[in-house]
Every structure is written in structure tokens, then in C-alpha cells.
Amino acid sequence: MFSLSSSADAQVEPFKGERIDPDVTSGHLNHLTPDQQAAFNVFKDTLAKAQLYSPERPHPTHDEPTLLRFLRARRFDPQKAYKQFADAEAWRKKHNVDALYATFPVDEFERARRFYPRWTGRRDKNGLPVYVYRIASLSGPLQKELNTIPPERRYQRIVALYETMTRFVLRLCTHLPHRTEPTPISSVTTIIDLDQVSLPTLWQLRSHLQEASALATANYPETLSTIAVVNSPSFFPTVWSWIKPWFDEGTRRKVHVLGKDPGPTLRTLIDPKDLPKPYGGELDWKFEDEPALDDAAKAVISEMPKGPVVFENGEVRRPTPPDPADVSSGES
């Protein structure tokens, strides 16, 4: 999803390297150092004692890739990770996230996709799903439509789309063949396209973008591997000065500003057949299109399902609404 997260001030300048080669294994399952594994054990024990996590098989309350995202976000400090996780769980209960997602209307869900980063249906060379966000597509009628959505419902739409990313897209990509398997896929690669974007348009969208980024940073940490900013205009340093405070330093390091000719660099991260043509690849896909699933994904799910779904045990299914008794008693 959209989180313009990147390095420090120097990266408002064009990216100078020839390759984008993120480390997608350090701090992940099957690649933990002894100290990281010890911190992970403490973190899980702390959550279990607080009744925020149950590892009971075959249905633990949270999978290990999710827990590790919170721990990585807090640099393997179990107590800091516990605080963020507890806050996120309280947020989920406050907003009744599981019920919201399970009952979200399909038609509205599909309309909401137009305002946020979209999965292309393809993956980068490490198996991470590739998302694209073309900001200019939100101008004109779409921007007017966005402004008519009540703030509370707009917030709920963002939540539903993040749930799709974590509960469907990332799980599906973990199931598909990838370079680092059996290490799960727990983050995404995102291309932010600023072509034909004016400064007034970005200013008008700033609250919309900040809302989505703040929600993700707090409640869906470490779901971003790389952001490539393409077609950046001359005023991008001004924009960066607005948005830099939204993100921590670790997140800011993940942005690469590629300018007007991103193809050579993006092709080091994404195979040309999986990279949309506007960004130097061979894939016939644009932001308004539905995901163009690759052959491996088609073999598993045939086509992209509509509406809220989850991927479990190799299959697509609709999310199950929680028992009202559990919700009323405060259980997740």
C-alpha cells in the first residue's frame, strides 16, 4: 500500500545506483540470528502471557510472519514490539476489523481499489507482490468522488484493503514458488508514479495519503520492502519535505527516486515480463486494470476474486464473521 517511506534527505535526489537489491531475508523466518530468535521467543511468550497470542495448533491466533513484522519494526526489542502489537490489537477491536472485512460489500470494495495502490498481479524477482500507485489517476472526477466519502467510511475502506494485502495477496505469494522459499512473503514492492501530477493535486490529496500511511505504520508495520518513485517532478523535494515526518528513518530508507527513465533500474528488481510497460517492462498493464495474474497464480486461483477474501491452506475463501459473543466479550 502507499507508504512513501524512504531514506534520508539525500534520497530526494535521483537514485544513483544501477540496482535495487533489497535484503528480503534478514530478520525473517529461517534467517534469524541466535539473538533475534531469542528475542522472538521472548516476544511470543510475553504476548501469550498477556493473552494477546495463542500458539495452539492447528489454529494459532496469529501467524509467525505477522508477529515478526512487529518485532522487526521495533528492531527486535520485545518490549517495544509488545507495546505496538498490543496497541494494534486494541485498534482492531475498536474498529471491529474482522467483522468489517468479512461483511464489506463487494461492489464498494471494488470501487475502493481505484483510490489506492493496486496489485499488478505480478511479483518481483524475490516473489514479492508488485503494487503500483499512479497519483494522477486520482485527479478530476475520482478526486471529487473521494471527497464525497465520509471520513469514517474512507478509513474503513483503507482498512479493508490492507486486510486483503496481508490476508490474501501476501499469503498467496508465499504459497507460490519464490526465490527465498520456504521463507514467507510478508512485504510488497510498490511503484509510485508521479507522472502528470501537479503540486496543487498533491496538496489536495495530502490528508488522504497521510491517513493511509499513518494507519499502515501503526497497524501493518513492515509490509513495505521497496518503494520506487518514478516520473518525479521538479517540485518533488518540496513534497518530500511535507511527507518525510510521517515516517521513521528505517522506512524512509526504502524509497528510491528513479526519475523519468526508471526501466533500467526497475528491471534489476522486477523481471521485464512482470514489469508494466509504462515503467520499462513488457507487461501490458496500467493502473486502472485488474491484476494480470502470472501463470503460477492462475494455476492456483484461476482469476482474481472480487471483494474481501482470504487465502488459507492453498485455497481462496470468504472471511468468516466473528461470533457476536466473542466480539461483545472483547475477544479477537
Rank of each mutant, 00 (worst) to 15 (best):
F2G: 07
S3H: 08
S7I: 01
E18Y: 02
P22D: 01
D23N: 04
V24M: 07
G27W: 05
H31A: 11
P34V: 13
D35H: 09
D35M: 07
F40N: 01
N41E: 03
N41M: 00
V42Q: 11
K49N: 07
A50S: 08
L52S: 08
S54P: 01
P55E: 09
P58Q: 14
E64R: 08
L68N: 06
L71Y: 11
R75T: 11
A86I: 12
E89G: 07
A90I: 12
K94V: 10
L100I: 12
A102G: 10
T103G: 14
F109P: 06
T120M: 03
D124N: 04
D124S: 01
Y131I: 01
V132P: 10
S137A: 11
S137V: 06
G140L: 09
Q143F: 12
L146E: 05
N147I: 04
T148Y: 00
I149G: 06
I149M: 09
R154F: 13
Q156D: 15
Q156T: 09
I158D: 05
V159G: 00
A160T: 15
E163R: 15
E163C: 15
T164L: 15
R167C: 02
V169I: 12
L170E: 14
C173L: 12
T174I: 09
H175C: 05
L176D: 03
L176K: 02
P177N: 06
P177I: 03
H178V: 04
R179C: 00
T180L: 03
I185V: 10
I185R: 00
S186A: 15
V188I: 11
V188C: 09
V188F: 09
T189P: 04
I191E: 02
D193P: 07
Q196S: 04
T201S: 11
L202Y: 14
W203Q: 13
S207V: 15
H208K: 05
Q210C: 06
L215A: 00
P221I: 12
L224P: 07
T226V: 15
I227C: 03
V230C: 04
P233W: 06
V239W: 10
S241E: 07
K244N: 12
K244L: 02
P245K: 03
W246L: 14
W246Y: 15
F247V: 11
K254Y: 02
H256A: 02
H256D: 01
P262F: 00
P262H: 04
P264D: 01
T265G: 02
R267S: 02
L269R: 03
Y279T: 00
G280E: 08
G281F: 05
G281Q: 10
D284C: 02
E288N: 06
A296T: 05
A299R: 00
E303Y: 04
E303S: 14
V310Y: 14
F311W: 13
F311M: 04
E315K: 15
R317W: 01
P321H: 03
P321S: 01
D323G: 06
D323M: 08
A325I: 11
V327D: 07
S329Y: 05
